[in-house]
């Protein structure tokens, strides 16, 4: 039997050897799918996501042709590959969790993107989850942000996200917060997903589905926001690197 999260107290090391404040390895690329208007590939540890963006374009017929009130309409499609989890599973179309994920993403980007610039049009964000190992919402948000940047859709700042958890077995006064949970930690510990806009402290997405003591929530939020800022730097680096390549490519 592999060890579980209770061994954290023995050594202050987590199940995969990280300390409490360390992110998993993040790897990201943009413009991976030439056929799409914008695309990105992102790995946070073993969670791997491909995102493509098409649009802004004229909405599909019969769907009210784009957004109302002179704003673009955002649609999100999430596709969880059957091989993504531990067990191979075919998910039904109406999977509740997926529907909820789509809804959260739609909400997040409707308020982040400058949708008023594209009245009567639709922006379609499609996400393919290739591998699943915790922090799914955070990874999809980060991937979508990159893909939207690649598509050139204006937004006020990066929307980046990260999870934070808490070692629940400890006495309430010295529970450590944990940054960026992997799949096993997510199953055993309470956690919150936080998305912030830019490098300030403005929280635009906050999802928590587990119970946790009020007193621990604040440290979890602080740690998550701090993690988001680090994620933003990494994503920013990816975007700038890509930009540099494009410029050099165009010149050379």
């Amino acid at each position: 039997m592999p060890l579980d999260t209770s061994t954290y107290a023995l050594s202050l090391l987590r199940l995969d050897g990280r300390r409490w404040n360390e992110l998993r390895r993040i790897h990201a690329q943009i413009s991976t799918q030439a056929a799409a208007d914008g695309s990105a590939y992102l790995e946070m540890g073993n969670t791997k996501v491909i995102c493509t963006v098409s649009g802004p374009s004229e909405g599909r017929r019969g769907q009210g042709q784009g957004g109302e009130g002179g704003k673009a309409r955002i649609e999100v499609e999430v596709n969880l590959a059957g091989f993504a989890g531990v067990e191979r599973k075919k998910r039904a179309r109406g999977d509740r969790r997926i529907a909820e994920l789509q809804h959260t993403l739609t909400q997040a980007y409707t308020s982040t993107l400058l949708t008023h610039l594209y009245p009567h049009s639709t922006i379609l964000i499609t996400l393919h989850i290739l591998s699943l190992d915790g922090s799914l919402l955070a990874a999809t948000l980060n991937a979508a942000t990159l893909a939207l940047i690649d598509a050139g859709i204006p937004m006020s700042n990066y929307l980046v996200a990260c999870t934070a958890g808490s070692t629940s077995f400890e006495e309430s006064d010295n529970a450590d917060p944990l940054l960026d949970l992997n799949g096993q930690e997510e199953q055993e510990l309470p956690f919150v997903t936080v998305g912030i806009l830019g490098d300030g402290d403005k929280v635009s997405v906050l999802v928590m589905e587990s119970r946790v003591q009020m007193s621990r929530l604040e440290t979890m939020l602080v740690v998550a926001v701090d993690g988001c800022k680090r994620v933003r730097e990494i994503l920013d680096g990816v975007v700038r690197e890509h930009g540099r390549n494009m410029v050099e490519g165009a010149v050379g």
Partner: peptide, 16 residues
């Protein structure tokens, strides 16, 4: 009775 293949990351470090 099902067999599962589990993949885990390991972060190797020198400060233990």
């Amino acid at each position: 009775g099902k067999v599962q293949k589990i993949v885990r990351e390991l972060y190797l470090r020198q400060d233990i």
